[in-house]
Design a protein around this nucleic acid. Structure first.
Lengths: 160, 160
DNA sequence: TAATACAGTACCAATTTAGTCCTGTATTGC
DNA sequence: GCAATACAGGACTAAATTGGTACTGTATTA
């Protein structure tokens, strides 16, 4: 259930750009700032601009800029731009390849879960990704309980 | 962000078994019922029993049985049993391999999202997976708004 | 006109994962 | 006791995905 690494990077890039929302950022500049290989960042930026999340400016002094205010671009949009879909299961659309009996109850629940997941991802904007915990951010929403807990308690097994 | 197919199958198997919670199910029987290849079902059942979600009974007349009431086994547990972790990002634990500045704000938000995702998955039990929409199920909770909408409106792009 | 920077596509390599098979062990029933 | 059933565990193979790179083309600025 991991995000593709590219989608993960996508949020990092957008978070970085949201730190200076009006500026025009070049691929090489972003690459140097966040420590991801230039061709990879470039690939990502192309995708994000093709999907309308970024505006690209060609030529000398060109680069990329957020197409909207960072508080108006959600993580769901970023993930969807890179991955194409927000869904944990394949049986989330109308047709399902699995040969279960009609009215598969498992599928019904998964659709509900996928819908809720989208809600979660829609609840976080790229402005949130950029906002430092102590300083007050530029956009309206407040992180609330998010900033409270340093979260040193979680211990996750990363293997498979 | 797709679940591994094995984890997806896991919910199907558990949902099927939850339809007859007290019964002892054999791997071949389950395989025939849900249309997944026997070795694959077998592999899955071994994993689920090793993780304590199922009880295995060896020998003739053996098989597998749910270790708890279906209303007490959540989808989160099933997914975690098969996949090992419930998290969309790698940077969800205490340590993170990415060389971002300390106090990476992106990571902070992802941790929050992952926590909420777990909440969503914890909100659905295998009893829900088995419950038919018209008949009243055996366990307490009601599907509520879930059953209302046949959901023929979603059109998801399955590629990539 | 030269330099900069994006656009698009194609390609290679590595990782992951699905799926199968084989050997071993426990339990039941004859 | 013996045969049949069914799970336990691990190894292995093949395929799909995806990460990352490179190359050619085009637009814009100085």
């Amino acid at each position: 259930m991991r995000l593709s690494r590219l989608a993960d990077y996508g949020t990092v890039v957008m978070g970085y750009m949201a730190g200076d929302p009006a500026a025009v950022h070049t691929a090489t500049g972003i690459s140097a700032a966040i420590g991801i290989a230039p061709p990879t960042v470039s690939k990502l930026l192309k995708i994000l601009s093709r999907r309308g999340l970024l505006v690209s400016l060609r030529g000398s002094r060109g680069g990329y800029r957020l197409s909207r205010r960072p508080g108006r671009i959600t993580v769901a949009e970023v993930v969807e731009a890179v991955e194409g879909t927000i869904a944990l299961t394949e049986c989330s659309g109308v047709m399902c390849r699995c040969s279960m009996e009609p009215g598969c109850t498992v599928q019904r629940e998964w659709r509900q879960i996928n819908r809720r997941l989208r809600g979660v991802l829609d609840g976080v904007t790229v402005a949130d990704l950029a906002r430092k915990r102590t300083r007050k951010g530029p956009s309206g929403r407040t992180p609330g309980a998010v900033a409270a807990k340093p979260d040193a308690t979680v211990a996750v097994d990363h293997r498979s």
